[in-house]
């Protein structure tokens, strides 16, 4: 028991050290520009009680979920088509390879002009953020499947659609999940930036309003929420991956 407590302390020592340093620095500095950890936690519960967090988080959450789901699912579908059809791959791959490295926020000015400043803007940005990497990860996942698995399935008399759903998709799923997991944090960064620059609601907007009021404690609350949501999303995708592939990997 003693060992396990010691192990827990050692494992979490960087976090404990970070929070302790933050707390001490905040107390010593005694300035609104550097609130202590305990002050930030108190403010977190104040904002939670007043409903500010729930209201803003629900806006951000909805945007992220809609954009991520549509972008991720369409990315998987396009990736599958590229993976199983050489002509589609040859025609789409250069385009996707070209657009993939563009940072999502690079699309912001263009999308502001095309879509305007409304609810669709952050959703489209999150869609772009999720779509290209997931499509690429799906394509790579399918390409990495040894041809002998496909040939074995054909020799066993399976139709192409049966092979797709029973062999190709399950075997490509680790790569697809990696793509989804990598983007699960990125979509939160994207929604934050979109809300800070263009949309008056959400966690990003809460941050930018706090900045104008020099409320560093509120900014820090928003950052903590962002970190927790990114972490939660990543863990959720990881749990789904475990459920889908854990038995056989």
């Amino acid at each position: 028991m003693k060992d396990s407590i010691l192990n827990i302390l050692i494992k979490n020592s960087p976090i404990i050290l970070f929070l302790t340093t933050w707390e001490v620095a905040g107390k010593v500095a005694n300035t609104p520009l550097l609130p202590s950890f305990s002050q930030v936690i108190v403010e977190f519960f104040n904002l939670l009680q007043s409903g500010v967090i729930v209201e803003n988080l629900s806006h951000s959450f909805l945007r992220v979920v809609i954009g991520y789901l549509i972008g991720g699912l369409l990315g998987i579908v396009v990736g599958i088509f590229m993976g199983i059809n050489r002509t589609i791959e040859l025609s789409l791959r250069p385009l996707i390879s070209m657009l993939l490295p563009i940072p999502t926020l690079g699309w912001l000015p263009l999308m502001m002009l095309w879509i305007g400043i409304n609810e669709a803007l952050p959703i489209v940005l999150i869609f772009i953020c999720a779509f290209f990497p997931v499509a690429y990860a799906t394509l790579l996942g399918i390409k990495e499947i040894p041809q002998d698995y496909i040939n074995s399935a054909k020799a066993l008399g399976a139709s192409n659609s049966y092979i797709l759903f029973r062999i190709i998709l399950p075997l490509a799923s680790p790569s697809i999940f990696t793509g989804l997991r990598l983007e699960s944090g990125m979509v939160w960064k994207t929604v934050l930036a979109a809300e800070m620059f263009a949309i008056p609601t959400g966690i990003g907007a809460m941050m930018i309003n706090a900045e104008s009021l020099i409320r560093v404690d509120v900014i820090m609350v928003a950052l903590i929420i962002l970190a927790l949501m990114s972490f939660g999303f990543e863990k959720t995708i990881y749990a789904l991956e475990k459920a889908a592939t854990g038995k056989w990997r």
Partner: peptide
């Protein structure tokens, strides 16, 4: 029926 050299049982 075809059994490849690497057998290739479907791992999933």
């Amino acid at each position: 029926g075809y059994l490849h050299q690497g057998i290739h049982l479907f791992p999933n």
